[in-house]
């Protein structure tokens, strides 16, 4: 395609696949926003780079400290934004971030049935399955079957609570601390924490060495 101005492709992207029809509209909207200095190409690129730079490693630091430091756990339960800030995660003031305690009595699993709301500042971009229609439609109808597909069996006498992230809250699951992790440092504990356990589709074990 001939280029007659410098704005055709304002944001770097994969050119190996055909672009969907709406991409041309997106390009034009971005061009207008850039021309009017409402939202510059540099700002869009910086936001993408910031989000791509965030990973579940950030969330694992929160979980490890919650297990190890009761005062920090209290803070995380009342103000997860502040708790995330204390482990060095830059947090927005909005939306509200909420910690969900998985315990011996209740197991939480998170979904966004309406779209793909996810605690991105803490966990980075969501996995593909989290955004799939399959997961979003089924986990509110047959959650125990869906969890079984992740290899997770929730005992029948334990309450399962599906949390649908419908509006202004984003949820981080605090997985149960695995047996056999006594005496570990926070860094070692963080190494046990997986992304999926912080969404609530899996539980954690200490690997057998």
């Amino acid at each position: 395609m001939p280029h007659d101005h410098p704005h055709d492709h304002p944001v770097s992207r994969d050119h190996s696949e055909p672009r969907p029809a709406f991409a041309a509209l997106l390009d034009q909207v971005l061009k207008v926003l850039d021309d009017k200095d409402i939202l510059t190409t540099a700002q869009v690129t910086a936001q993408i780079e910031d989000m791509d730079g965030r990973t579940p490693t950030e969330g694992a630091k929160i979980i490890a400290r919650c297990w190890d430091d009761p005062d920090y756990l209290d803070l995380a339960r009342t103000d997860l934004q502040a708790a995330a800030g204390q482990v060095g995660i830059a947090m927005p003031a909005y939306p509200k971030f909420v910690l969900l305690d998985n315990t011996g009595d209740v197991h939480h699993v998170v979904v966004c049935t309406l779209c793909s709301c996810y605690p991105r500042p803490i966990l980075g971009p969501p996995p593909v399955w989290y955004k799939s229609r399959n997961y979003r439609a089924r986990v509110v109808v047959e959650p125990r079957d869906v969890l079984a597909e992740f290899g997770t069996t929730v005992p029948q006498d334990k309450k399962l609570q599906v949390v649908d992230s419908t509006a202004d809250c984003r949820y981080l699951v605090l997985p149960e601390r695995p047996a056999g992790s006594d005496g570990m440092t926070q860094e070692q504990l963080a190494g046990l924490v997986t992304r999926d356990s912080m969404i609530g589709v899996t539980r954690l074990n200490v690997p057998v060495t």
Binding site: K159, Q161, V162, D164, A167
Partner: peptide, 12 residues
């Protein structure tokens, strides 16, 4: 499934 299983949802 378990009768106590529930959904938590944000509603205006």
């Amino acid at each position: 499934e378990d009768a106590t299983d529930s959904l938590l949802v944000e509603v205006f």
